[in-house]
Design a binder for these strands. Structure first.
Lengths: 243, 243
DNA sequence: CAAAAACACTTGTCTTATACTTGTCTACAT
DNA sequence: ATGTAGACAAGTATAAGACAAGTGTTTTTG
């Protein structure tokens, strides 16, 4: 398949920025340096950087250089993260308590989603103001999680640790009755309703990198989805919209 | 029987695009390359690609190339189409049974959302294959619903009847235990979990026009949300896609 | 010591040139 | 109607380079 050079470079740089290779506020290598590194002309480097600028990841000042825009991670995940993002936005410092950290053979459903035979499974409780907030199970391909420790996943969100530019996600939201095990972890009565959310996160090439399952007690949580404005005008005529 | 070459090629390419052989947003091989690969003339390749374009699967820009167009359109679609839409796609004809149709003073929450004192309240059951599928309550400002009859709302989706261009929506998804009344309507045990969805739909000027509340039995339904990201790199220079 | 000038660096914005791509024709064969 | 072959126009990607303008540091000057 044909590849467009500046898109490749943009992907590469996006990954570095998201992974924090370039600390926030610090400058990126100059266009000339990047040009030498990627063996591409300055025009091509610029197009890559400009697409990143359009995405709000980086910015530039004449005579100074390119630098990582304010909060690179927030920006990237802003469109992706929901629950954790909402917690952070509402000023609640999320805490994590790891209750399982193991490399295991992938169960059928997980193997099908991640296309990987061995996976790292991390199960944890999210707390907000000391109260259990969610039971989260995350699976990721073993080769991606090899360098991770239990302390790593306790300290930082999973996305940050992988150092991969995320490209999108598919999320399935459902409801269920809580299982006895989760009821104990969440401190809710057995059989009470929970909101279940399963998310498959992919990188910029569309390869699945994370499968996560969130279980929230219904009385504390709800999901807010903004359906963008532009959608209606984008949709061709005759297309049925929401009621 | 004679085989039509360009249809064969179109089928082949359609398969590749659908299978994700060409990642969404990336460029397909050029017409010249495909011409060599299929050992067919460029005109034939073009006819195949053009049929795919008519189907909305791919798009092309002069000087740039052909690329998978599914991403932006599908994603926005995925965000706006509801369960009813998915039902229709999967070949199930949704039926509606109106159980209430009344102009009433707006209760506090509804008045706050719609900014209207008098509203039309319609409560109905959605059926799929004769089975109750959802209990839906829709409120709309009385002045917008004046010309509607009970038969209208039974026959057509609400949004079609209003004749207003919709501009977006905010959707809140939560879980709960079913109320006794809804349990009877849905034919599920009292206390079983349900998925609750409240949506505020606005017109293109941002004015709220519809407030709807959907209650789904948890065992039959789940929500799928596509979270797109980094669509910017899809488009050639100057053209930016919606997010 | 302090202000000014010089310098080395950066991005921003142009050219010029080549190779490649789609868009659109015409002519001809089956 | 379908397919092949070819030619041309218009647009894009990339390279290489030149120059203006902004920034930060260093050196010189008053």
């Amino acid at each position: 398949m044909r590849t467009i050079r500046y898109q490749q470079i943009a992907d590469d740089l996006r990954g570095r920025v998201a992974a924090g290779s370039y600390a926030a506020g610090r400058v990126l290598p100059s266009e000339a340096e990047l040009s030498a590194e990627f063996d591409a002309s300055r025009v091509t480097i610029r197009r890559a950087l400009e697409t990143l600028r359009d995405e709000g990841l980086v910015d530039a000042r004449q005579g100074f250089g390119w630098f990582v825009a304010a909060a690179p991670l927030r920006q990237t995940l802003g469109q992706l993260v929901t629950i954790e993002g909402q917690m952070a936005e509402s000023g609640v410092e999320p805490q994590r308590k790891i209750i399982e950290f193991a490399f295991v053979p992938a169960p059928g459903r997980v193997r099908a989603a991640l296309k990987s035979d061995n996976v790292l499974r991390v199960k944890r409780i999210n707390l907000a103001d000391g109260e259990p907030f969610a039971v989260v199970t995350v699976w990721c391909p073993a080769e991606l999680g090899q360098h991770l420790s239990r302390r790593d996943v306790e300290r930082s969100p999973f996305y940050e640790l992988l150092g991969i530019a995320l490209g999108g996600a598919t999320q399935t939201i459902g409801a269920d009755s809580v299982t006895p095990a989760d009821a104990a972890l969440l401190g809710v009565p057995v059989g009470s309703p929970v909101l279940c959310c399963e998310r498959l996160t992919k990188d910029t090439h569309g390869r699945p990198v994370l499968l996560s399952e969130h279980v929230f007690p219904a009385h504390r949580t709800e999901f807010v989805v903004d359906l963008p404005h532009a959608a209606a005008s984008v949709a061709p005529s005759g297309l049925r919209l929401v009621e």
